[in-house]
Design a protein around this nucleic acid. Structure first.
Length: 503
RNA sequence: GGCGGCGUACCCAAGUGGCUAAGGGAGAGGUCUGCAAAACCUUUAUGCAGCGGUUCGAAUCCGCUCGCCGCGUCCA
């Protein structure tokens, strides 16, 4: 397996420090507001990555933190007149609500900054003792100049940094580049006792503390959004390595942004969609597919069109899975089984798929290519089904079962294809509904209309039958007449093709 | 201005030195169907922003130009 390492700027073979074991840390969220779809991308990408490592046979320890003390949390708490902890609790709950819906699994350890004050203070003391930090006016600052390799993750030289340094977080800085490890709390702000006076930790120190506590001084993978490369991860490296004298992280992974109209989605620009808003309009599985259909390091553009295409893609997969479901259990039927060429072709397609799928994910976790392989397999299998039908044969149950199992397995990794195909086509709760489709017909109403139509068809009253079909279609229900005379139905949503709009 | 990245068909998107440039969506034509739907087949980039260069060979490497974005400020 190869992974792109932000630190080296290259794709390199992934070799965990301890054979068979992977320790990974991913920066979670600061819980001061609802998550937007950009947070969801990071969560989904690393969720799937963890699943893949596990499936690959590694024993994975996945740590994802909550930043539950921070200026923004304090500001919000003051605005609402509630304690900071109340804000943190509220948005941690909201995070779980959103991520559960997206099928993001829990990390093995989900530490909170406020539970690691002792560890942070230990690190700060150690840095002071080693001369990498200095106390000034109640603050403790990291002496960047002393850490000679500072800037190597973000590829910045000291000159670049000095030129770019601005806002004085602390008036006591020796150098504008220095960053705060501990800051004095103002009256009314949450504060913890420390050797340097009451205060609270700086932003970067928490991740160093939590990562090293749960994963050790050196661990395999540290991930997060690209916007964390500088200064957050750069500072984590500086703090951690200055203290331990050992490499902090072996491989840095950073996911790209979700853009809107080619601009980064962010709170400060106000151009964001929360996960909850998105899930009001789109199926969680379609959102997942959308997020995985681009390589994790590339930017991905938020648009109605893209979500609808993701949904259309899922329709294609579920159509095949539904077909399989209907085909099974007919081994007693009249048609001869296709046990020769056709079954062999199915097995060959499955075998090839498994190789290609894994190869794609092994190549810097290329979920986009892996999904391409899934669709390629769909086409191959559809082709075999069609060939059987043309030859008046049918695939034996065992071949179908093998194909179903392959989709189950690949889908489980991606968090896709896990629903019952019937449920997928008949669900009404979420769907990229257009304004035109207003009231939804109930399944009972639809079944009644189908019976009416079957009657008309029996009389060869095609005009009535077609009228019913058209009427249902106008309400978003498409009928499919099957070979035996049965009629299936599904809900559809036309593509709008419109760019995203927001008031 | 500095640093980093991106620009592949109508849209989305893989591919980063060498088989006919994956896959999805959309469109067109066809097979099947009472009509449909689904599926399948054919079709939509002699070319990968543009111009040069390296090479037997480049979308892939190098240089320049144009366009877009990100970082340097909280940020997934």
């Amino acid at each position: 397996m190869k992974l792109y390492n932000t630190f080296t700027g290259n794709k390199e073979p992934f070799v965990p420090l301890r054979p068979g074991e992977v320790r990974m840390y991913v920066c979670g969220v600061t819980v001061y507001d609802d998550c937007h779809i950009g947070h969801a991308r990071s969560a989904v990408v690393f969720d799937v990555f963890r699943r893949y490592l596990t499936a690959r046979g590694y024993r994975v320890t996945y740590v994802r933190n909550f930043t539950d003390i921070d200026d923004k949390i304090i500001r919000r708490a003051q605005a609402e007149g509630v304690p900071a902890e109340a804000i943190a609790e509220r948005y941690i709950a909201a995070y779980y609500r959103d991520m559960d819906r997206l099928g993001v699994q829990r990390a093995d350890v989900e530490p909170r900054a406020t539970e690691h004050l002792a560890e942070m203070q230990t690190i700060i003391s150690g840095l002071l003792a080693r001369g990498y930090a200095y106390a000034a006016g109640g603050d403790v600052l990291f002496r960047v100049k002393k850490f000679s390799t500072y800037g190597s993750l973000s590829k910045r030289s000291a000159e670049d940094l000095s030129a770019g340094a601005r806002v004085e977080v602390s008036p006591h800085k020796e150098d504008p580049m220095d960053f705060v490890l501990w800051k004095t709390s103002k009256p009314g702000e949450p504060a913890w006792d420390s050797p340097w006076g009451p205060g609270r930790p700086g932003w970067h120190i928490e991740c160093s503390a939590m990562a090293m506590k749960h994963l050790g001084e050196t661990f395999d993978i540290h991930g997060g959004g690209m916007d964390l490369i500088f200064p957050h991860h750069e500072n984590e490296i500086a703090q951690s390595e200055a203290l331990t004298g050992r490499p902090f992280v072996r491989c840095w992974m950073h996911n790209g942004f979700v853009n809107i109209d080619r601009e980064k989605m962010s709170k400060s620009l106000g151009n964001f969609f929360t996960v909850a808003e998105v899930l009001e309009r789109y199926d969680p599985e379609a959102v997942r597919l959308f997020l995985l259909s681009t390589h994790y390091r590339s930017p991905v553009d938020y648009s109605d069109r893209n979500f609808e295409e993701a949904r259309a893609g899922l329709d294609r997969v579920y159509t095949l899975l539904r077909e399989f479901k209907g085909m099974r259990g007919r081994d007693e039927g009249a048609a001869p089984m296709a046990i020769g060429e056709r079954e062999a072709a199915v097995d060959e397609a499955l075998r090839q798929f498994q190789m290609d799928f894994r190869e794609a994910l092994d190549d810097d976790f290329n979920t986009a290519a892996a999904l391409g392989q899934c669709f390629d397999l769909v086409r191959h299998l559809n082709r075999e089904i069609a060939a059987c039908r043309a030859a008046d044969q049918r695939l034996p149950d065992r071949a179908i079962a093998r194909a179903q199992a392959v989709f189950q397995e690949a889908g489980r990794l991606l968090g896709l294809f896990q629903q019952d195909p019937e449920a997928w086509f008949k669900k009404e709760a979420v769907a990229s509904r257009t304004e035109a489709t207003t009231a939804l017909l109930s399944p009972e109403e639809i079944e009644t209309r189908i019976r009416d139509r079957a009657e008309a068809r029996g009389r060869k009253d095609w005009a009535t039958a077609d009228a019913i079909r058209r009427a249902l279609e106008a309400q978003g229900v498409v009928l499919e007449d099957k070979a035996g005379g049965a009629t299936e139905w599904k809900r559809v949503t036309p593509l709008t093709g419109d760019p995203p709009r927001r008031a």
